[in-house]
Structure formats: structure tokens, C-alpha cells
Simulated assay, not measured.
Amino acid sequence: MFKLRSQVFGALMMSATLIVAASQATAAEIKFALEMFEGDNPEFNAAKAFKDYVENKSNGELTVRLFPGNQMGSVRDTTEMVQAGTLEMTLPSDGAFAGFYKPIQVWSLPYLFRSAPVAWDVMSGEFGQWMLKDIEEKTGIKALAFSQNGFRSFVNNVRPIKTPADMQGMKIRTMESPVYMEMVKALGANPTPIAGSEAVMALQQGVVDGLENPPPVLYTGGAADVAKHLTLNEHVLGLHIIVVGKSWFESLPPAHQAIVQEGARLMASVENVQKTEGDWIYAQKIAEEKGVQVHTSTPEEKQAFKDAVYQPVRKYIAEQVGEELLQQMEASVGEAEAKLYQQAE
């Protein structure tokens, strides 16, 4: 009798072990590395929305583990890991991604987008969807969606910037990006490429006179603590690309692929709205809490800046990505504006 009980118990234990093993085999963990730190900020909030959506829609068969604050390395590091198949997911900016895919620079045309909703329409429209597929074909990285990384504006310690002439002779910190350097040169200022981690100290110590970033980054990153003037001129719309490993994504069942794709679009929507909202919320915080003098550019002032920088930067980007791609982007923007503002095409 004891022997029979032992055999029955052993059979039950083996069955339970197989059930657990089967459930573990069907569950997939998505390791998602991002640059921004954990907290109440658009990137992390959007990533958290992705995590909640995917885990709930898959009934826990998919789990998402977030690695914020560059825990897995720089954006370039994590993008290389996704490309190599050693990481499932990351969120590079357009500047970092240009090293993998040159045509992404077409989004950096200064004053290309009249408003955030115009950019959103282009991201989700025919041009944006074509580029997502082209990224996959050219790099082997599966691009799921584009999202907004904020409109970039200038802070400085010399004078209020209301016209291009106000920037004459200023030393402006830029990313190590030829596009941004060309833009600053076209404004009569001197571009000074400095790593992001050293930018605030360079401004504080007078190594540079100013720098440019979206208001939430200026506030949380510390630049607003050491700057005197902020001009909300919104010269370039920063872009994020939501990317995953191609082989990993294709290994998922079709139902799980659909959930991940849906989650990416939800994530893009969350970041788009919070980034847009954050531009004016943090501009107000910068003025009220940091004592920075804030000037919002008028449409006429923006046009003066566009007149100064658009063609020189366009010429440079055309040399990098080709005239045809630029024309396609400009046509897409025109269609989005016509749709949004009900203008005749």
C-alpha cells in the first residue's frame, strides 16, 4: 500500500512539474531598455503603459521587464544589442539612430512641422509606415512605431533670443550631429559638440553660451538651473523609434506579435501627448521655479528662423539621404497640414 501511494504521489509530482515547465515555456519575457530614468516622465510613463497593456492583453503569457536609466548601456549600446538579438526592445532617439539608418535625418529638418499633430499624422501615415518597413529592410531591426521626443528650444546666458541676429557669435552646445551643427552655423552661432552628460557643466562654466533641448529635459537635466534665458522657438521635433529584435519578434505566435505591435502604438500615443503637454508645463516651471526669462516665439519670429536655416540644412541632409526622400517628406507634411487645417492641397 505504501509503495502504491509513493507511485501515485510521484506521478502527481511529475505531472505538476510538466505543467509548470509548459507554462514557463509559453511565457516570454521582453527586456526593454531605455535611456530615461524611472519616474513621472513621458518616456517612462509610455514604457509603463506598454508593459501594462502587453501583460494584461496576453494574460501574463508575455511579461515586460523595464531597464530605465541606461542600466544596460548607452542608447547606441542597446540598439546594437537589439540588432544582434541579445535584447528584445529599446527606444533610440533619431540622433542616436542615424548611425544605424541615415535616412532618419530627414525628420530633423528645422521648422518642418508646424505643430505636433502634423508630425503625428506623418508618423502614422503612408510615409511613416514606409520608413518603418525600410528600417527593417536596411538594418535588420524591427521598427514598430515612431513617437515624439519633444520640440527642441534654446537656452542661453547672454541675451534673450528673438531673432537669428540675437544668436550671432554665441557658442551653442549641440549633439555630435552634423545636422544640428549645420543649423547652428546657419544662425550665425558657433556649434560646439559636447556629450550630453557634460552639457550642463559646460553651460555653467561658460564653456558654451547656450544649448538646445526640449523644456522637460532642460528642467529635469539641470540646464534650467544654470541658464538665464529660454526661447520657445521649437526648431526641431525630436523623434523616438520603438524597436525590437526582428528574429525575436518573428519567433512569437501571431497573436503575441499583434499584442506587441498594439502596445507599441499605445506607447507612442502616450509619449506624443505627454511630450506635447510637457513642453508648456515645464516651460512654466522653468520660469516660475528657476527664475529663467522665457520668451515664446511668435509665428513671424519662427518664420524668420526658418528662412535662415531651412535651406542650408536641407542642402546638407539632401547630400546624406537624397533629394527624393526630402521631397517625399515635404509632400507628406503638406498633406497632413491640408488634412488638419482643411487647406486646399
Rank of each mutant, 00 (worst) to 15 (best):
M123R: 13
S153R: 04
V64C: 04
S58N: 04
L66K: 08
F151R: 03
R159S: 12
S147P: 05
E126R: 02
E38M: 01
F113I: 00
A116C: 04
K102Y: 08
G85A: 09
P110G: 00
S58C: 04
G69K: 00
E88I: 03
V106P: 15
D94A: 15
G39V: 04
A145F: 10
P42L: 03
L132W: 09
V106K: 12
W120D: 07
E55D: 10
Q105H: 07
P103E: 07
V106H: 12
N41T: 01
V64N: 03
P68T: 02
S74R: 15
K133H: 13
V82T: 11
M36E: 08
E80H: 14
E38G: 01
N41P: 10
P110R: 03
F127D: 08
N59I: 03
G140Y: 06
A47Y: 01
G125L: 11
V64I: 01
R76Q: 13
I141C: 11
V54S: 13
P164C: 05
E137D: 13
G99P: 11
Y53V: 05
A49P: 00
P42W: 09
D77Y: 07
A98I: 04
K133W: 12
K138F: 07
A84Q: 13
T78G: 15
F100W: 04
Y111S: 00
E38W: 02
A116L: 10
I104N: 10
Q129W: 02
P164M: 07
F67P: 06
G39N: 05
I141K: 12
D52R: 06
L109F: 08
A119D: 02
A47P: 00
N59V: 05
Y53M: 08
F127R: 02
R65I: 10
Q83E: 04
K102T: 10
Q129K: 11
L66M: 09
D121P: 00
Q105E: 15
A119I: 01
P110C: 02
F32G: 10
A145C: 07
E137H: 11
E88D: 03
L66Q: 10
Y111Q: 00
L91G: 06
W120N: 07
R152H: 09
V158K: 15
K48Q: 15
G60A: 00
D94R: 08
L34M: 14
